[in-house]
């Protein structure tokens, strides 16, 4: 097997995650799909690292994880706040930004 298959898998997972973001309405699930996309890109980075024979790709994946952790913390805090004020975690309910 050619290790390039990891990249295909990463692309597939990324696309599935993106579709999930578009389809689901529950903010938490949307958020989980975002995490899935991030993980897919991490897999690609790790595969690239192997492809090029250096660790820079892994470093990138590492930073992605750190930033994703920060993002999860803030994002979930936002969701909780939103839920408190609207009693709903639906992203469609927060649709006031229109004319």
């Amino acid at each position: 097997m050619n290790p390039v298959n990891y990249l295909y898998l990463a692309a597939l997972l990324f696309t599935i995650g993106a579709s999930g973001v578009l389809i689901r309405r529950n903010a938490i699930i949307v958020f989980m799909c975002v995490e899935l996309m991030l993980n897919a890109s991490n897999l690609a980075l790790v595969a690239f690292s192997r492809l090029h024979g250096n660790l820079d790709g892994q470093i990138m994946a590492f930073f992605t994880m750190v930033v994703a952790a920060a993002e999860v913390v803030v994002g979930l805090a936002i969701i909780v706040t939103l839920f408190r004020s609207r009693h709903s975690a639906s992203v469609d309910d927060a649709s006031l930004m229109k004319l």
């Binding site: 290790p3 990891y6 993980n39 790790v46 994880m65 979930l76």
Partner: peptide, 26 residues
């Protein structure tokens, strides 16, 4: 898969941080 690709550290971190902490937060 990370482990299979030689990213041992990331593989562990993935389990500990992501699956362990982040998903529990979710």
């Amino acid at each position: 898969f990370y482990l299979a690709n030689g990213a041992y550290f990331l593989g562990i971190v993935q389990i500990v941080v992501y699956t362990g902490a982040v998903m529990m937060l979710f």
